[in-house]
């Protein structure tokens, strides 16, 4: 039990748990494995139908995953973040260039001061530009008269101080999550079913899954035709 608690309370797991994008990717990946597996062991239907349904389900979830990776981060995550930056101009958020920059700051800000400086976190430091400035705090004269670079907070302040001073930039982080949720909903409930109509049948035919198998809909239509003829 101890290893389980250690794993779910680790920084990496906590960052994933707070990130819509990663959560949905994991969920879709698990669906791609879980659903076909359970379809294959379902004893209510015959073997051919199970194989057909499981392959179709697997391909559908794979398609969902592809759509998610291709569409959500560039369009919704970054697009939404930029849109919200314009909407919240009055709130004086720092000038993060994209969602990735903001998320790198957020990740480092949640670590202890010493942990931030570790080699493994260098990629997060590199992701944040030096000229990302917080203009809400500035000195009247001197070095920071135009605002303080957010990297300064990460270099000098502890996690608690950053939280207390309100420099986690919850609004910016929340806008990324909201646009990711909206993007996930649009991608997985509108784009995926429509694209699956176009892509899945040719793939199923190409791998020889649609030759011997008739979908329930086809069977029913054929039965209706026969009934009409009779």
């Amino acid at each position: 039990m101890g290893w389980f608690i250690n794993a779910i309370t680790s920084n990496r797991f906590q960052t994933i748990a707070q990130n819509t994008d990663t959560c949905v990717k994991i969920e879709t990946g698990l669906k791609a494995v879980g659903r076909p597996s359970f379809t294959l062991i379902d004893k209510h239907t015959d073997k051919e139908t199970r194989k057909y349904s499981a392959t179709k389900e697997f391909l559908y979830q794979l398609l969902c995953f592809g759509i998610y990776v291709a569409v959500i981060p560039p369009i919704f995550k970054n697009g939404g973040f930029k849109l919200f930056q314009k909407v919240f101009t009055k709130e004086n958020l720092p000038n993060f260039r994209n969602a990735k920059e903001m998320l790198a700051y957020y990740h480092l800000a949640h670590l202890d001061k010493e942990e931030r400086m570790l080699e493994q976190n260098k990629k997060y430091w590199n992701a944040i530009s030096d000229d990302v400035i917080d203009k809400t705090i500035r000195t009247k004269t001197g070095k920071f008269k135009d605002g303080i670079p957010v990297k300064k907070y990460l270099q000098t302040w502890s996690k608690d101080k950053i939280t207390d001073k309100g420099k986690m930039f919850k609004l910016a982080k929340g806008s990324i999550e909201l646009s990711s949720i909206v993007g996930s909903v649009i991608g997985l409930t509108i784009l995926a079913p429509e694209l699956s109509h176009l892509i899945l049948h040719p793939i199923m035919k190409a791998i020889g899954m649609e030759k011997g198998h008739k979908k329930p809909a086809e069977e029913s239509t054929e039965k209706n035709k026969l009934d009409k003829q009779v």
Partner: peptide
């Protein structure tokens, strides 16, 4: 919208996205 964003920024549960997807699906 500001309130929703602030709440999501403060605490984003993995459940929110999957519930939204289930409802819309």
């Amino acid at each position: 919208i500001k309130k929703i964003c602030e709440n999501l920024g403060e605490h984003n549960d993995a459940l929110y996205a999957v519930l939204a997807i289930a409802v819309f699906k």
